[in-house]
Design a protein around this nucleic acid. Structure first.
Lengths: 373, 373
DNA sequence: ATGAAAGCGCTAACAA
DNA sequence: TTGTTAGCGCTTTCAT
């Protein structure tokens, strides 16, 4: 398979014997292929990049030679020369939250379909790491970026990207309508508001919000604003957010105390709105540990619509984002930007439709004033 | 920041004015930096790759020039020339299963620590896509691969990798002790056996296995073998595996019928061993839908130890794999291989310790013979 | 339709 | 310690 005796010896003093190559490195270059096919390097190159420029019979000869020699193009050379890598950089906070894993799926799908490769880095919601990881991607000369930052309103990395004119599209972060940043997301505020309205419609009045650490993310804040909207619209008093340590809803040891105290208080909430599904799942288990039944004693509404939410019992009520589609659209949007000659690509901010899944963990509030048995 | 008037005009006819560069592309090359710092290209290069070879005062001058010009090295050039990319290819089945997301975390951590970048692709457990995606990585001239294949015992992609001598380390797939493939995993068979023994110790005798579609994965088969071991060791009759459609335990509509029938049968199982946690979570919700209480009526044991399992209520009993560590060790092992001069790196197969979390969803079996109320 | 030649940005001998 | 000089593998004018 490696050596083919039927192959006539090349005219020039072809020196490289196949066996002299280090194992694991097919050091077959396009030049080798060209020589084997008795065409010039340029023609061989064209066969793969601009097939229409070369006669079919010639092309076939080249392709056969390539096959015979197990030629594998070295994309590095191509990219260096052509000054475009066809690599997209992707920065997500973490993959351990299924939201982003699902989004990645969409991103990969779209990129593959368009012949782009991906370089993925995660930031862990840390600003410093965001900078570092993006710099990293930039050094690889990615053509553009799809990224989710912790807080788009105060992001050093975004400012830098803007300053350098690097093309990027935000995913999940919802850019200001009047700004010049491009983003693909749902309408966080509106969708959250709708979710909370559904809670109110179910009869709840004392609704608390559970959010990640100090609402460090812009989305958490936007969703909280949506909560306030809904509460105010119904003449209800918004409660200050309960901040839980991590987005990943850690073993909830600390959460336990906080939630326990809250539920024992005179006017304990009858429903919770969590700014993401993981938090919701963690909260529910904490509530159960407290001896409360969900949704009979307390209702819980999440946000994200991760697949897993539908698998738990009762199924998690939640505001559903089209996670994979957010990824897909972000890539498409970015590619559109890249392929447009520095022109305006329609609207910079795309708002995808959200959904509401109000079942399972949401029910009417109990009659009692205090919930603990 | 871009132009610095204090900078003396360069000696040669330096033509490129900063403003002539296209926005978003810092076309500052090492040559520009060298010129600005009044050293040769080689010296400038050395400042970044082999700092010890250049006088500190010179190095500082170069670094300052680089800073001033916002020089960003083009890794493509470096990689092309040096013939090593310091990029590792990673292929995982999917990120939507938290097992792999957690593993990715370990991989990224380890790679970053060693100054390696990563290129991630997912295969969706499809053999054809495995080939295609790996070819893709190879064209990018990754230095090596960390990958999980659906079935290592019959893998076209692994055969190809072996034939070409590409360095790789398997994650999760457990290579044969006597083979020459490198892998990092837990001992699937032993750990599964231990899990099932714990079920038996709790008093269960009729234990069923729930696995993904047709046990297409080698791990599912190894774990089933472990189940058989445990059953035989106690003189119990292993049951044929219940195959559920997807690894991702889809809305379990089909599963419903299967599980329902099984539980209504005369000698219904009192416990289930699922070959992964997602399956277990899906199964539990199905069981609850059938009116069965877990663990009072039926016990469920998972496998994987994903973080989410500890968050649900009751917490999922499971065989715990050190997911992040599997990733970390796989990278370290691969790097060791890469840096060894074609030498043997100790043992090719690494077995990491597993754990057992037998709580929550596992309890003693009920007394009744049939479980449905 | 094909070929010759000039690099893309960087590193690594080899000199000095 | 620093500079000179070749390329790495490929694409792409510019000729023919």
């Amino acid at each position: 398979m490696t050596t083919d005796p039927t192959q006539p010896p090349s005219t020039s003093a072809s020196s490289v014997s196949p066996t002299s190559r280090p194992a694991g490195e097919s050091h077959v270059t396009l030049a080798d292929v060209a020589e084997a096919a008795r065409v010039s390097l340029a023609t061989a190159s064209r066969v793969f990049s601009h097939p229409q420029l070369v006669r079919e019979s010639t092309a076939r000869r080249v392709r056969e030679a390539a096959q015979r020699l197990s030629f594998r193009p070295n994309l590095l050379g191509a990219k260096l020369r052509s000054q475009q890598t066809r690599i997209l950089g992707v920065m997500l906070p973490t993959l351990e939250n299924a939201v982003f894993a699902e989004c990645w799926h969409g991103i990969e799908q779209a990129a593959m379909a368009e012949g782009y490769s991906l370089m993925l880095v995660t930031s862990g919601y840390e600003a410093e790491r965001e900078r570092e990881r993006v710099e990293y991607l930039l050094r690889h000369r990615v053509d553009g970026l799809v990224l989710t930052v912790a807080d788009a309103t105060r992001s050093a990395v975004l400012d830098q990207l803007d300053a350098e004119g690097v093309p990027y599209v935000l995913a999940y972060n919802q850019a200001a309508e009047d700004g010049m940043r491009h983003s693909v997301s749902v309408d966080n505020r509106t969708s959250a508001s709708e979710g909370v309205r559904a809670l109110i419609a179910a009869g709840h009045q004392r609704i608390a919000v559970v959010s990640g650490a100090f609402m460090a993310s812009d989305r958490a804040r936007q969703r909280y604003a949506g909560y306030e909207d809904a509460m105010h619209a119904h003449g209800l008093q918004p409660l200050p957010a309960v901040n839980l340590p991590s987005h990943i809803a850690s073993p909830a040891v600390h959460a336990g105390a906080q939630i326990g105290a809250l539920m024992r208080a005179p006017a304990a909430p009858t429903a919770f709105f969590c700014t993401n599904d993981l938090l919701a799942i963690g909260l529910i288990s904490e509530l159960k540990r407290l001896g409360l039944r969900v949704p009979r004693d307390v209702s819980v509404l999440g946000y994200d619509g991760i697949a897993l939410g539908a698998l738990v019992e009762p199924p998690l009520a939640t505001v559903v984002q089209p996670n994979a589609d957010i990824g897909t659209q972000a890539v498409k949007h970015l590619l559109a930007r890249l392929h447009t000659v520095a022109g305006r690509t329609a609207a910079p901010v795309t708002l995808l439709p959200h959904g509401l899944r109000v079942t399972g963990t949401v029910a009417a509030p109990p009659d009692t004033t205090t919930n603990l048995p």
